[in-house]
Design a protein around this nucleic acid. Structure first.
Lengths: 204, 204
DNA sequence: CCCGTGAGCGGAGGAACCTCCGTTTCGGGA
DNA sequence: TCCCGAAACGGAGGTTCCTCCGCTCACGGG
């Protein structure tokens, strides 16, 4: 499977409904807040924006570092969970294309959080290795599906595609990122389609 | 030469007399404060103890980290500067013995500052390599002098002696550290004296 | 449906951080 | 010796952090 969603943690007791809601809200707000203004947002502000008391924030995330890490993991999980969401009813290549779009957005968010993530990088160097694996797995699933459906070439490699998508983000300039990235991703998709073999099946 | 004292920094403008005094006072206080109570002393307290305003502390050491590092460097410099102070009028072996005593004290201080140093270790990994060199150089000077005077064996190695002194600190227990370390260092000195050759000279 | 329990909430308040700027002091020239 | 500009001082006060504990309300059992 490509992703575990947020439920992977074995030691996490089941949270009461309100607690889970608050936690989710905090993460959502934190991601936005930390991606702007260099990540030096006071925690109080995040709590207020999330509509909870500062105490609640600290209960869920005892240190600033914990919040940053959780926020980052949350984004990665969201991205990877999308693989399941973009499932069967949708054609495999369309799913792949859509996911690519989301990946580019994810990269933008990650860049925004860079300053905030700085504080985490020292204490947990495993983090990035782990999330990288998660993402590669997700992408592999999508590629596999599309290959199986015969809509993209069989030799598509997750690492290469990942690199290409990062490139897309780098190249697209700040203002027109959405448009430019969109067109570049179309180009990339076409590249992946070139030489695809339709396996024996309904359409063959 | 074994040591550069505190004057090594090429970019340091000459400080006004009062500034230098305050800086010195702050470092002295900081060393003591940071070696006790796990190093989580409020900076305000250090400033107050040093008899200066908090503003003065921050001017000299813009971050907590800067203060910790400076305090540590200060201790190393003090230790190494002692080599010059324990100069010619004093016999080379007596100088060596005295310096060993100070080294053990230094180790104790360093241990006390361990928690505080934690914050520095990430940002400047060169620091410890550098201070290590300083100390080895200092010890080499002392050993060289004593060997030249023929009062210790010629094959004495700085690295070994350093290790031995660290051992002395480790072995001596908290309460009677001074006594025990003293006797162990005497033992170490005797070991160094064994087989010493008196070179041709006045006493030969 | 209602009740009891304890998980979860919130935010006041105390501690530490750090900046900013009016005041003091140093020290080199006249 | 006196004077003046610049260096350095100091601490009030605004900001952020984080803890602590009395209150609330979610939810499982009756």
């Amino acid at each position: 499977m490509a992703s575990t969603g947020e439920a992977g943690d074995p030691e996490a007791r089941v949270l009461r409904a309100d607690a889970r809601r608050n936690r989710e809200k905090l993460l959502a707000v934190a991601v936005v807040a930390l991606s702007h203004s260099g990540g030096d947002v006071p925690l109080d502000a995040i709590a207020k924006q999330a509509g909870v008391g500062i105490g609640t924030l600290y209960r869920h995330f005892p240190t600033r570092e914990a919040l940053v890490e959780a926020a980052y993991r949350h984004e990665v999980d969201r991205l990877c969970a999308a693989v399941d969401e973009l499932g069967p009813p949708m054609p495999a290549d369309a799913a792949l294309r859509e996911w690519m779009q989301r990946f580019v957005d994810y990269v933008a968010t990650k860049r925004g959080m860079a300053a905030a993530l700085q504080s985490v990088v020292t204490s947990d160097s495993q983090l990035f290795a782990h999330t990288y694996r998660q993402i590669v797995d997700a992408l592999n699933t999508l590629l596999g599906n599309a290959i199986a459906a015969g809509t993209i070439r069989a030799d598509a490699d997750a690492d290469d595609v990942l690199r290409a998508m990062r490139g897309v983000w780098l190249v697209a300039d700040e203002q027109h990122r959405a448009d430019q990235a969109g067109r570049l991703l179309d180009l990339l998709m076409d590249g992946l389609r070139f030489g695809a073999v339709v396996r024996p099946g309904p359409t063959a």
